[in-house]
Structure formats: structure tokens, C-alpha cells
């Protein structure tokens, strides 16, 4: 049996990684409420991939990691409006249409979610979909 990192220490690792910055900065995330010792709410950003309708757009999204994270996936919701096959009309990412959440593994992280959402933006289907005005937000 492999060593299981408990939720809070796992989220502290993710926090430290997020604070250092990830790769080329096309995805990033941080804690939303610095006073919440349970580290439940997070904000992420994705810079839209080039050669797609999302090119250069900055998308913000929210994560909610409940007490069962990372055994269970986080809830993920776009704040910036986006037209994409796995995003519901209210901004929620639909786990039945986004495999990272639907086939969640406790080895995945918020970084995995952001990176794979960015990859999905560049898929054949998504890269040409008409988009709401840049900067529009879900209420």
C-alpha cells in the first residue's frame, strides 16, 4: 500500500507549488481566503491557448475542495463566461464531460484540472466555438 498524504498536507503542498508559480504561467492558482485553516476555496486562472478563439483571454475559475479532497474531486466553476463542451450554462465544469473530474484520481491536483481544461480549450471542437464577449462573467 502506498503512502497516503492526508488532505491538509496535500493542500499545503499545492499551495506552496502555486505560490512558486507553475511552468510558463499559463495556468495559476491560489487560496481565496487566507484565513481559512481548512483551505477549502481557491481561485485559478487559465490563459487561453494560442491559435484558438481563446487566445490571450484570461479565464478565472473557482475551486471548492471539501473535506474528502483529494479522494474526491474538487467542484470547479468558471467565473469568466466561456463556451466549451464541458462547461454548463452556469459555469460549472460538468464531470460527465470532463474526464479529469469524471475519472478522478487522488494523484490529480488543481494544477491537473487547469492544465487539462486549457488543453480542452484547444481541442478540435472547442477551439473554434463562438465565445461571449471577453471579460463577461457568470453572475
Amino acid at each position: 500500500m502506498s503512502v497516503q498524504v492526508p488532505r491538509n498536507f496535500r493542500l499545503l503542498e499545492e499551495l506552496e507549488k502555486g505560490e512558486k508559480g507553475i511552468g510558463d504561467g499559463t495556468v495559476s492558482y491560489g487560496m481565496e481566503d487566507a484565513d481559512d485553516m481548512l483551505m477549502r476555496n481557491w481561485t485559478g486562472t487559465i490563459i487561453g491557448p494560442s491559435n484558438t478563439v481563446h487566445d490571450g483571454r484570461i479565464y478565472t475559475l473557482k475551486f471548492h475542495c471539501d473535506l474528502n479532497y483529494p479522494a474526491r474531486p474538487p467542484l470547479v466553476r468558471f467565473q469568466s463566461k466561456i463556451n466549451m463542451d464541458c462547461v454548463l450554462p452556469d459555469g460549472r465544469v460538468d464531470p460527465t464531460r470532463f474526464a479529469v473530474l469524471g475519472n478522478w484520481s487522488s494523484n490529480y491536483s488543481m494544477e491537473t484540472v487547469l492544465t487539462e481544461l486549457r488543453r480542452a480549450m484547444a481541442s478540435m471542437h472547442n477551439k473554434k466555438l463562438p465565445q461571449p464577449p471577453e471579460g463577461a462573467m457568470y453572475s
Binding site: 502506498s2 503512502v3 498524504v5 492526508p6 491538509n8 498536507f9
Partner: peptide, 10 residues
């Protein structure tokens, strides 16, 4: 009385 959590990494 202070509660803490401690984890022994691999």
C-alpha cells in the same frame, strides 16, 4: 489545549 496534525512522509 492546542490541536495539531503531524504526517510522516514516505
Amino acid at each position: 489545549v492546542f490541536k495539531l496534525e503531524l504526517f510522516l512522509p514516505e
